[in-house]
Nucleic acid binder design. Structure first.
Lengths: 185, 185
DNA sequence: TCCAAAGACTTCAACAGTAAAGTTAGACCC
DNA sequence: GGGTCTAACTTTACTGTTGAAGTCTTTGGA
């Protein structure tokens, strides 16, 4: 019999064990820094799994959700070119072409040549795409609310503020040399 | 002439703009929750770009680093089976097989049959692999230290504590149904 | 002892992403 | 107004991952 190929739910050592191991193997490690960084990474992974499951129920992938979000954030009339989308998502234009193909086939977006400049292509959210985004958003925000339930309003504020400070630092630290992204936001 | 296919540095609207857009399109959104969640996601993406660049300088990929880390955390003699590795990394066994192939070719690990049970395979870190991990760790911890430079010791503690609380919540909320991971930690 | 079942990979086909080369429409210049 | 340049995709070849099927030991009866 074959195995189920079900990776299931990620079996890794506890955060404490992991950090203890790092310290054991690498003396000059600041455990406090490592705790913050590792917790950040793990949290993000778990959250992406959560989003992925919810999106799967809606019949869309994580990748498709990213595109929907980007078009919605762009605002009415929910149009962007493939190049612009690629830039915002951190994908190559080639990947964008294929992603749009798939999404257009599923009716989430339309792809048309710009009449005023026939080199340009316009990707536009369909009503169905917009509806999917809304449904996904509803589920996601419930999940997020749930996730933060243990933090007081004040704590949420402090957490948000610190994360934004880190974000500013990381953006400042690595201006914008090339680099691919693996993740959504 | 062809384009450079350089996605470069991720051009997206500012966090505030993005959250404003969400609120515009989706009335019942808690901006504080969204700020925390979006900042988390962005921060993680940027950090992964940073790690990726450093690792590229060392000639290893993000994926390879994950494997090295997992073996190091497992502790001396730095051995695990492909199945166990796959579970800890959240990959399918198939992907693990190929990943180990590549890493064995590059001399980062060895792959041998277990003499006591010839169905089992043992992946073991080589000295070269261990050295690569150490170098990567040195660069990563410098980067991380750099990233957190704006936070006081007290703030770091508070941040770590809150993240761990969130982590506990997310682990509790979605026990361990199936799901693939896109990210490292 | 022999054989069915299970476990632990490995192989295969299909799909998504990258890098690099290709295509085509508009821009610029003489 | 014809030739070269450039911008904005698209195509092609290749790599890495998934899901499903296949292989090969080991285990546990009958």
């Amino acid at each position: 019999m074959s195995d189920t190929t079900e990776p299931s739910g990620l079996q890794e050592p506890s955060l404490d064990e992991q950090i203890a191991a790092y310290q054991r193997e690498f003396r000059d490690l600041d455990p406090q820094v490592e705790q913050v960084v590792s917790a950040l990474g793990r949290l993000n992974r778990r959250m992406n799994v959560g989003y992925g499951r919810q999106l799967a129920d809606l019949g869309i992938s994580n990748a498709e959700w990213e595109v929907l979000k980007t078009l919605v954030v762009a605002g009415s009339p929910y149009r962007l070119g493939p190049g612009e989308l690629a830039k915002r998502l951190g994908l190559t234009p080639a990947a964008m072409t294929h992603r749009i193909d798939r999404m257009a086939n599923e009716g989430l977006v339309t792809r048309d040549r710009d009449e005023n400049n026939r080199v340009r292509v316009i990707v536009e959210l369909t009503d169905e795409g917009r509806t999917k985004w809304l449904e996904a958003m509803r589920m996601a925000s419930a999940f997020e609310e749930d996730l933060l339930q243990d933090l007081s309003g004040e704590e949420r504020g402090a957490l948000g503020e610190m994360l934004i400070r880190l974000l500013r630092r990381v953006e400042h630290t690595q201006p914008d040399a090339g680099g691919r992204l693996k993740d959504l936001d």
